[in-house]
Design a protein around this nucleic acid. Structure first.
Lengths: 254, 254
DNA sequence: GCTTCTCATTGACGCAGATCAAGTGTCCGC
DNA sequence: GCGGACACTTGATCTGCGTCAATGAGAAGC
């Protein structure tokens, strides 16, 4: 990110970006890989970009690739026969997209923002997974984390009020923003909402109107401030956590 | 299940039940283990039983063991500071309970029925996991399945009506019952509800009264029949799927 | 037999959030 | 500048489910 000339022989061919320079290197599925393993991954990886709104995989279809989000945000979304929709995951850089050992996708994956993926062909990746403990271990770890997050979301969907849902979502984004620039979520944090009101509604199990109204409510109560519809400012993170219906302890356990 | 005298030397000491005779052997976390790996597991495993209602692990507490459900049903449940509860998982025989690589449990685990667990000390299990690809592979597979199930549940909690929630839950139990005796879920299936109305409410994100009313509604419409409050009979599985708001295709993809 | 406890059902009522319907603000192409 | 598309907000009304309260039904203890 900061103009980086690494101390590595600079004369290697650069058929594509090198893993060593990758922004998600330390958190992605490859983060436990040593130089040799990384070389194997490097040899089979390829990049692909998507425009906002573009479908990455469709529910029910076979997908022959999987990989990591390098840049942007990807939504995972389920749709019922009559059109009701529920977003079941929101994938940020370093998150892994695609279901190993099951080629039929159980949900749509759609680019929310401009997206760049680092992809592997399914068969090659699964073969590699078998022989590469570092890869498998990290994938297990990430899957367990996803499962924890999914269960947190079940509590939100099943038991939280609309206001709490919005506040929880904003708190998560706040924490993310704070984590990314290595500050703790304290007073005076800013970030951009990656989702439209409609996408938030799909994520939170609400309607677009309720999302709008609850955001207005939180604004009126001074819990959050918005310069425009997308840029959010949190003057008091504890107040936001409180509105989210969470124990306002130190937070930051996960 | 059917009076099984296996063709294995019957003179081994039986300090405890042998894995080879275990009822969940083919589906549990150990199912990919060969004889050697199994021996290692066998050496460190121990059994523990719980009465209905008994707490297995408490949210926020450190747990030093994890393992498989051998018999019975275990609920995983989150509770908010003000007492609202959401069940986030229901574990049946062969399911894995406990979170590897994270000793603090994020939810309560409670025995719903009389439960028998096959347990391992956390540190030993994690050490074994590291050196036993067959174990790790199966655990990854099971975790991915749990994640799929959790996401299905997110759709249920976020978007389904009370009636659909009940019907979906009954359909899952029906499928389970059908799977266990190797018949397909067709007409005329029977099973026992493992949960009280209150536990169902916690699982489905409803109140106990709504659960009761919706079951009454499904009964009135002839979708299900109950001999008593717990024993359910499904005369027409397709009708049940329809009430669940699901595509009434062949089903049975998962 | 009677009491008590737990679990389940049913009814009356109220409210959070969905639905229906305008209306505002901004951007874009012309 | 103007029309249209899109995202968002706001208001009025409706309704599914929660809440409160009473009742029933079975099991356990005495």
């Amino acid at each position: 990110m900061s103009g980086s000339e690494r101390m590595i022989a600079p004369n290697l061919r650069k058929a594509h970006e090198r893993c060593a320079d990758c922004g998600i290197r330390t958190r992605a599925v490859c983060s436990y890989c040593g130089p040799q393993d990384l070389q194997l991954l490097d040899a089979i990886k390829f990049y692909k970009t998507y425009d906002p709104g573009q479908e990455i995989v469709a529910a029910g279809e076979r997908t022959d690739f999987l990989g990591s989000v390098v840049e942007g945000v990807v939504s995972l979304c389920k749709t019922m026969p009559d059109g009701r929709r529920q977003m079941v995951g929101l994938m940020f850089p370093s998150d892994f997209v695609g279901r190993p050992m099951r080629p039929i996708a159980p949900y749509d994956a759609v680019a929310v923002t401009p997206v760049k993926l680092c992809l592997f062909h399914r068969s090659r990746f699964e073969r590699l997974l078998k022989d590469t403990p570092s890869l498998e271990k990290r994938l297990l770890e990430m899957t367990l984390d996803e499962l924890d997050a999914a269960r947190d979301w079940m509590l939100l969907l099943g038991r939280k009020t609309a206001r709490e849902k919005i506040a929880t979502f904003l708190a998560i984004l706040t924490r993310r923003a704070a984590g990314l620039d290595n500050t703790r979520p304290h007073d005076g944090l800013r970030f951009e909402l990656p989702l439209t009101r409609e996408q938030m509604a799909d994520y939170l199990g609400l309607t677009i109107e309720t999302v709008s109204r609850q955001i207005t409510g939180l604004k009126k109560d001074g819990v959050v401030e918005f310069a425009d519809a997308r840029s959010c400012h949190v003057p008091d993170f504890v107040a936001l956590l409180d509105a989210a219906g969470e124990d306002a302890d130190g937070g930051m356990i996960g």
